[in-house]
Design a protein around this nucleic acid. Sequence first.
DNA 1: GCTGAATACAACCGTATGGTTGTATCAGTG
DNA 2: CACTGATACAACCATACGGTTGTATTCAGC
Lengths: 125, 125
Amino acid sequence: MVVSVQIAPPDFDPVFAALADHTRRDIVRRAINAEEGVLELASHYPMSFAAVQKHVAVLERAGLITKQRIGRRRVVRTNPEALLVARRLLDQYEGLWRARIDRMNQLVAETAGAIDTVETKESKR
Amino acid sequence: MVVSVQIAPPDFDPVFAALADHTRRDIVRRAINAEEGVLELASHYPMSFAAVQKHVAVLERAGLITKQRIGRRRVVRTNPEALLVARRLLDQYEGLWRARIDRMNQLVAETAGAIDTVETKESKR
DNA sequence: GCTGAATACAACCGTATGGTTGTATCAGTG
DNA sequence: CACTGATACAACCATACGGTTGTATTCAGC
């Protein structure tokens, strides 16, 4: 019996908020390729270790990265799924945009045959 | 004489920050299709007109929407270019991700033929 | 089982953010 | 010109955010 698998509706707020910081975006970028611990990551940025640690925490809460113990360090990896979540929203907007264009073209095509229908479309307030 | 058109390097911070709010994302979505003034927009949300106005200002500063005078109202339209800016960054990350996968596959392929090269690749600290 | 490297966490500070209310500007319309 | 619909802007408040320093925790390795 398939119970219509409820995918948790992603809350975009923390994802976009996490991406709205240069340092955090750079951490994401780094963590795509490298496998660095938090201390190693911190060495790249002109701020305290604790500050970087906080950034990592923000990214982790947003689901953009995960940490895994390896030896004594916790290696940071980016989670491509979370990136897709954000991208899908933008794609959706793009879809709406295209739909609008299509509708406008459609409208133009119709109007070309019956110009006086314009009055009914444009609500002048 | 083409002067190597310098596209201003987009600062992603305000774009993602603007998208990190449910109300603002909804404004963007609405403004893709509809052509509403700020007052009309505000009517959709459970907050004061001024609050919505601020949200619109944030979106405008981020370049995600534009306002155009039509009659007495200022009609809000989303700027698909800005959405693309954000999307391109995510695409770039996805590219890095794929590149990493490819490199790993490459590595596996090489290793299959010469197992003892593993030592040189894995830096054990 | 100690020691120390790597990480986590708490407290604090200045500034930014999201909301409010109130007042000012500005352009159509009677 | 006066009126009013639509917007802008300023002041204020509570809370969140990005940074700091300092202290606690937790394993890896000897």
